[in-house]
Structure formats: structure tokens, C-alpha cells
Write a protein that binds this DNA or RNA. Structure first.
Length: 433
RNA sequence: GGAGGCGUGGCCGAGUGGUCGAAGGCAGCGGUUUUGAAAACCGCCGUAGUGCAAGCUACCGGGGGUUCGAAUCCCUCCGCCUCCGCCA
């Protein structure tokens, strides 16, 4: 959420910056200035009435003790009118506050000044490339045609419908090894604290990180029974529970930055992605991810963002996977992000780079929603932390990249050296089950 | 699923209708004392909104109600705990 005061005082600037995301914001924000000034005015009148009532209450307290019943009754009847007036102003005010808050909750973060301006991924900026494109003296296959039998989409469909997968034997072990490997690297080399979190959450955490209220259609919701008042949601990313671990907390001086990593499955309805990436593991309703989350002081967040991105990259590098880093343009940024680097891994079968990690700087946007603050020094006022997160990495997509980049002509795959100890073998080949 | 209990400031814990944003204690911060430390003593010590400021306002799990006035009474929702049942 943006700062209400900032929006009220700099409405034109906010509109200008949001227009870089989408031209529609200009009209959507047109009435916001009016709402903001109504809010201020009502706060003023309501508080003045409340001050009068409070003063009168002290007087009443004395009258009650003094025992002058007649004066008390007289004054009491006068105060009824004041109370009624106050109540009516409070009702108006709370309606305005609610509307204002709802509007603010649906406004995305302001793009960072550095972010390339553009309306689609065409305008994303390539920041760097790492490694070399693997070359093949045969036609490289797609991951779903490699290690035949190990990736089982028919059985998955029987169980759960489309966009689910079953992994057999060495494919399942590869998934598990990747999770372990990533967590090991982040905890042992990159300085992260590992955390295991719930996969079902209430709505408040989803509001905290920005998935709700706007993107409910992307989520799976669970009901405990028909008239469940507060359904739980399956997390669409580990970012949600991990970032919200510190909701409503104030970090003490000296306790930042904090870097957490955690493995979670992720669940996405993929509403609106019909026809996209329909084959294979690339886009699933359920996938595994190792998430990186960092809480940093405001002045140090840019630096922390660069580090977190490099930490995610370290996995790709140690696995020897060719990739590039792109900075998303303003039109491609996610709702809560002010700046995002996507790590895109090379997929030989598609002849292009595909997203395997998305690392974002949120500034204080999520912290304001989730009320995550820190005290810069003893006795100082709390301020909002900056949050940063990224995939480190999406496990299924890493599995795809390994299969494709390390494939052999016969459809088998030789494993990157880093994974061999965990896998207990040097290569994997197809097998029917 | 059945029965009961509880939600107060960083923590513990008073407060059952009237200057209560809230006693007291612990922790923390500043000081006095001390060669230094501990102890003792004194002071400070929640968050937010609004205003140029002094200040004012709000917040005792959330929402609603009663009342001139609610942390205190009523309703409702949420969360947590204990016991029983079921269960990985």
C-alpha cells in the first residue's frame, strides 16, 4: 500500500508514475484527491466534537460526585445531542476511511525511477548473461520428451486434471535433491536462515504481501465446511507466509537485515493462462519453490536486493545452467514490486530464455500493509522495513532446465556434478511405470 | 464433534461504569553513587491519526450495542488454551 498522506499530497506525481504501468490509472485515480480532502475535513470535525465530549465527561464526573442530581440530569440531557452529533460524524468518517483504504489497497506500487518504461516484456532490459548456450549435435528435445516415463502427465490428469504432474523414481528424486541442494547453498553459503511454514493461510497475510484483495481469482481457496466464514487459501508462493512471519512486529535496532529461505509448494489457479505452456511441467497448478525473503532497513534495501538476486543466481551458476538477467519494464512489474529482476534460463527446445526466478524489491509497500517495522536506533520511532524476495529457485523449472541443457542424444540426461552426491548417480534415463 | 476457560503496553500483571493510555513488577534507556562492576536510588520508557505548533484524537483481540460517559455491561465474530472423542 502506498502512504495515504503521500498520495494525498502528491497525487499528480503518483498518477504520472502509475501511468507507466498502465494508462488506465489516470482515470481510476481521478476522484482520489477529493476523497483525501473529505477524509481530512471529517477527521478535523469529528475530533473537535470528541474533544468537547471528553471535556464534558470530566465535568459530569464531578457533578456525579457532587450529588447535585438536578444539575446532573439537566446537563445529561444537553449532552445527548452532542453525543448523537458525534456519532453521526463518526459514521460518516468511518465510511470515508473504509473507502479510502479500499482504494489504496488496490493501487499497485510505484515503479522505481530506474525501471525501464514500457508496456510489455518487449521493453524489458537485459542486464547480463551468464555461461554459454549449450550446443547439441542433434535436435534438442523438450523436457517432456526426455527421460521417457519419468514425467507422467496421464496419471496426474487422472488424479487431478490438467496442469498437474506425477514424477517417478529418479525424476522425483531429482526434485527432492534440488530442494535440498538449494536450501543447503542458501543456508551454508549465502547466509540465510531456513524456515518451514504453513501452506494454508488466512486472508490477512495475502493482503500483507499484495495478492488480495485484487487477485483472488489466481488463488485456490479451501473451505472447511459449507458456511465457512473465513476460508483458508493455498499459498501461491512462499513469499506470503515467510514475509508475513513478522507482520505487526517491530525489529529491534541492530537486528536487520534478516534473510530467510524456505521450501514450499505453491498453488496457482492459472486463471487466464489458457493455451499457454500447456505441455509439460512449465506451468502447473502446483509446483515447488525455494523462496528467499529479506527484511532490510530502508537505506540498505537496494544493496540487499542486489545480494538476494546474486544468491538466486548462485544456484544457476553452481548447476552450470546458462541464463540471463532481465530487468522488468514498468508495464511488466508485479502489483507490489517497485523493481524486479527476472532470471531467465535457456531452454534449448524452445530456443529462448524462460523465467526461473523473479527477484523483487518492494520498498515499504508490503511492510505498510503487513505492519512490519524496525527501530533504527534505541528511542527512535519505528519505521517501515523494506522487503525483498525472490525464487531461489522455482524447482520444477530448474528440473526442466537441467533435463534440457544436460540432455544426451538418446534422451537420457547427465547430471550436473553438484547434484550427483544427492542423486546417488551421474545420469538418469527413462523408465516406464 | 462435546465441555469449559482465556485474550490489557516488549514481557508479567492490576483494574468490573466517571480525569484510565491504563497501578505495580520485569526488561530497556539516561543519571547519581563506585577504582571498575554489581546492588541501591532518581528520572525516562506504547503505537498511530491530525495540526505550522502547543495540542487534540484514537487504540485494553475485531465489529456492533447500551449509556451523558465503556478496558469495565450486553451481542457477535476471531484467535488461543485445557479436558473428552476422532485422527497422521
Amino acid at each position: 500500500m502506498l502512504d495515504a498522506r503521500y498520495v494525498a499530497d502528491h497525487l499528480d506525481e503518483v498518477i504520472q508514475r502509475l501511468k507507466n504501468r498502465s494508462s488506465t490509472w489516470e482515470s481510476q485515480l481521478a476522484d482520489l484527491g477529493d476523497l483525501a480532502s473529505q477524509r481530512r475535513q471529517l477527521i478535523g470535525t469529528t475530533e473537535a466534537l470528541a474533544a468537547r465530549r471528553n471535556a464534558a465527561n470530566q465535568e459530569m464526573s464531578k457533578l456525579a460526585k457532587g450529588g447535585d442530581r438536578e444539575a446532573f440530569a439537566l446537563r445529561r440531557d444537553e449532552l445527548k445531542a452532542l453525543s448523537a452529533e458525534l456519532k453521526s460524524e463518526e459514521t460518516k468518517l468511518s465510511a470515508i476511511l473504509k473507502t479510502f483504504e479500499e482504494r489504496l489497497m488496490s493501487i499497485p506500487n510505484l515503479p522505481h525511477a530506474d525501471a525501464p518504461v514500457g508496456s510489455s516484456e518487449e521493453q524489458n532490459r537485459v542486464v547480463r548473461e551468464w555461461g554459454k548456450k549449450p550446443s547439441f549435435d542433434f535436435e534438442p528435445k523438450a523436457h517432456y520428451d526426455l527421460v521417457p516415463g519419468l514425467l507422467d502427465f496421464e496419471r496426474a490428469s487422472k488424479l487431478s486434471g490438467s496442469r498437474f504432474s506425477v514424477l517417478w523414481a529418479q525424476a522425483s528424486r531429482l526434485e527432492r535433491s534440488l530442494i535440498t541442494y538449494m536450501l543447503n547453498v542458501h543456508t551454508e553459503q549465502n547466509g540465510y536462515t531456513e524456515v518451514a511454514v504453513p501452506y494454508l493461510v488466512r486472508s490477512a497475510p495475502l493482503e500483507g504481501t499484495g495478492q488480495l484483495p485484487k487477485f483472488e481469482q489466481d488463488l485456490f481457496q479451501t473451505k472447511r465446511h459449507e458456511d465457512d466464514e473465513e476460508p483458508l487459501y493455498l499459498i501461491p508462493t512462499g513469499e506470503v507466509p515467510i514475509t508475513n512471519l513478522h507482520a505487526d512486529e517491530i525489529f529491534e535496532p541492530g537486528s536487520l537485515p534478516r534473510s530467510y529461505c524456505g521450501f514450499t509448494p505453491c498453488f496457482r489457479s492459472e486463471a487466464g493462462s489458457y493455451g499457454k505452456d500447456v505441455r509439460g511441467l512449465f506451468r502447473q497448478h502446483q509446483f515447488d519453490k525455494v523462496e528467499l525473503v529479506c527484511f532490510a532497513e530502508a537505506e540498505k534495501s537496494e544493496e540487499a536486493f542486489q545480494k538476494l538476486t546474486a544468491d538466486a543466481e548462485s544456484i544457476l551458476q553452481q548447476l552450470g545452467l546458462h541464463y540471463r538477467v532481465v530487468e522488468l519494464c514498468t508495464g511488466d512489474l508485479g502489483f507490489s514490486a517497485t523493481k524486479t529482476y527476472d532470471l531467465e534460463v535457456w531452454l534449448p527446445s524452445q530456443g529462448r530464455y524462460r523465467e526461473i526466478s523473479s527477484c523483487s524489491l518492494f520498498g515499504d509497500f508490503q511492510a505498510r500493509r503487513a505492519k512490519i517495522r524496525y527501530r533504527p536506533a534505541v528511542k527512535q520511532k519505528p519505521q517501515l522495513v523494506h522487503t525483498i524476495n525472490g525464487s531461489g529457485l522455482a524447482v520444477g523449472r530448474t528440473l526442466i532446465a537441467i533435463l534440457e541443457q544436460y540432455q544426451e542424444a538418446d534422451g537420457s540426461v547427465s547430471l550436473p556434478a553438484a547434484l550427483r552426491p544427492l542423486m546417488g548417480c551421474d545420469e538418469i534415463a527413462g523408465q516406464k511405470f
